[in-house]
Write a protein that binds this DNA or RNA. Structure first.
Lengths: 345, 345
DNA sequence: CTGAAAGCGCTTACAG
DNA sequence: CTGAAAGCGCTTACAG
């Protein structure tokens, strides 16, 4: 692979001049010289070495996005948003899927730091693990000190994200909608206790209940993993507890999808016997049968805004924290509660 | 951020020795010296600069995966497979989503080359675009010459992938299963004409028809984009053509999902009036209503095997081409054709 | 407008 | 077992 030295030699100029032509667009170089260098670069199929450049500039045009699971549509939408926004600026997106494993997250951040990535975006919520949090804080502090930008898109140990949504308010609007439909016994599938975002959503559920004047009942709250499997298991638990829920609000769509599947297996009809509601509005939510009532989070925008926040940070600005809007989307999985004593008994 | 120089100074050794301790695990260094260097590194929170290292070794531990669309579950599963296999070896996975845009694919490959990525994996099929193919061939040739590994997981301009599945045979088994059920008029949603993989699947459809002794009818074949929208549009076309299909085989699951949604909108029942079959077995296929009959591709394995092929290439081996098995999965979206003259008229 | 030279942080023969 | 030194490919003051 040819280097700037070879380009300079072929063009008959110094490497300094060659470098100015290929990299510093605005540096004054005579038109004839510029032409010769460009010709040489083309002829040699010259591609600048980003490592050598990054060694000098102490930064490489890479944005690392840390997600919990790339096969979760929530995260692939966010990554897509980052990618759409970042790639026109010549930045490469590195996706790091932690599988919610502290060790894996740790080693990804370390690798990103060793590569001098310009930006790190945490798409998911922080894992509540003291050791991890301490090490992360150290790495991120060092990266920031070196000029890298760090952005969170979800609540974490350090508090609220730089760019995010109001999770609690979003869940509360769904609880309100369910109450409006006539439900009094609304269960909640809460996601993992260890995730900051799950806690925020649980708080939203409680606030929604209170605003609607409904009584809280801890038997109606089930903590689970954040996937379809978790939703199915939670339904089993609810059934076993005979808590008599007529509606199930979920902390994310995957839980709702898993719950619907399991309810069908138990012969419980949705929404006739029980209403089910999700959160996120991932793209499949619209095509299930029945289609899923949920709260839409602007996932691509979240990614795109995260990038743009980082970009401003890189320029030395101090951008203001952003909260993106959520939208209630009522579809086929919710209805009024059954008139006869129904629900999950 | 501290450098090896500072670590060496703090430990009272030369940078050469410090480097040997932190990087060359097997180089002989006295235990006492090793200890002092390790202590110093810990104290300074030393993280080696991957750029400086890569500049010397001409290779950086990065795997670029080029996909068509990261929000397509097919690709996120493959990426996940690569990531699971590559990350234990300290390699970072860079996901590049081309959106099937030649320019974007081109610039990603260029960026990967400029970063001296050790591996490039093409998860998707090649885009049939002569200019792109020529430029790609140039970049990839240069990268290979420099010791990088390049692996394809799907058919492309250069022919068959290093690691892949038998697309044609897979589709043919589905056509056979449909014929077995009694269908004589089997439509095919073929995906984009410009994609090599779509062509292979179309060939499989034709072969399946012939093997079952069924007549080919070009009115039954519709080319579309490879997403749900494409499946919906294709149903409209089929309906307009009055081709009388009693089954619709699709070149991927997304098409099948889009087709099922649109059929429902038209009041056509699946599978009572028309059977629908997909290809890939993405994870939602099991939870739609009805659940989707399809052909399972081992997507994570595809990614994992792609990585392991690349790893062997990196070691200088000449691994043998691999074909992973596909499995027919019959679920609720297929049944015998209606007894009364039915189908799409 | 152009060039010589220093230096980014590492690794690796080479010499001892 | 240890160290001095060259060099990977670039950019950027500095000098002209």
């Amino acid at each position: 692979m040819s280097s700037i030295t070879e380009v300079a030699r072929l063009a008959g100029v110094s490497v300094a001049t060659a470098s100015r032509v290929v990299s510093a667009a605005d540096y004054p170089v005579s038109a004839a010289t510029r032409e010769r260098v460009l010709d040489a670069a083309r002829e040699l199929d010259y591609v600048p070495n980003a490592l050598a450049r990054g060694l000098l500039t102490r930064r490489v045009p890479v944005v690392g996005v840390i997600v919990h699971d790339i096969t979760d549509p929530y995260f692939s939408e966010v990554v897509r948003g980052v990618e759409d926004a970042a790639s026109p600026t010549g930045h490469l997106v590195i996706t790091c899927s932690s599988e919610r494993d502290p060790d894996r997250e740790r080693s990804y951040v370390r690798l990103l730091r060793s590569m001098r990535a310009a930006v790190v975006i945490f798409a998911g919520s922080g894992l509540a693990d003291p050791d991890l949090e301490a090490e992360l804080a150290r790495h991120l502090g060092a990266m920031r000190a070196e000029g890298a930008a760090v952005v969170h898109l979800s609540p974490h140990a350090g508090g609220e994200p730089e760019v995010g949504v109001d999770n609690a308010a979003g869940i509360a609007t769904m609880v309100a909608a369910l109450a409006e439909l006539g439900h009094r016994r609304i269960a909640f599938l809460a996601g993992p206790r260890s995730l900051h975002v799950a806690r925020a959503r649980l708080a939203g559920y409680r606030a929604g209940l209170e605003a609607a004047g409904l009584e809280a009942d801890e038997r109606l709250v089930v903590s689970t993993s954040f996937d379809r499997e978790g939703g199915a298991l939670a339904v089993d638990e609810l059934l076993a507890a005979h808590a008599g829920a007529t509606a199930i609000a979920c902390a994310n769509d995957l839980l709702a999808l898993g719950a619907m599947t399991r309810l069908r297996e138990h012969g419980v009809r949705v929404p006739d016997d029980v209403s089910v509601a999700g959160f996120d509005d991932i793209s499949v939510a619209a095509i299930t049968a029945p289609s899923l009532s949920t709260v839409r989070l602007p996932l691509r925008e979240l990614g795109a805004h995260g990038w743009s926040f980082a970009e401003r940070l890189l320029r030395g600005d101090a951008p203001a924290r952003e909260t993106l809007p959520t939208t209630l989307v009522m579809r086929g999985s919710t209805a009024a509660p059954p008139t006869a004593p129904g629900g999950l008994r």
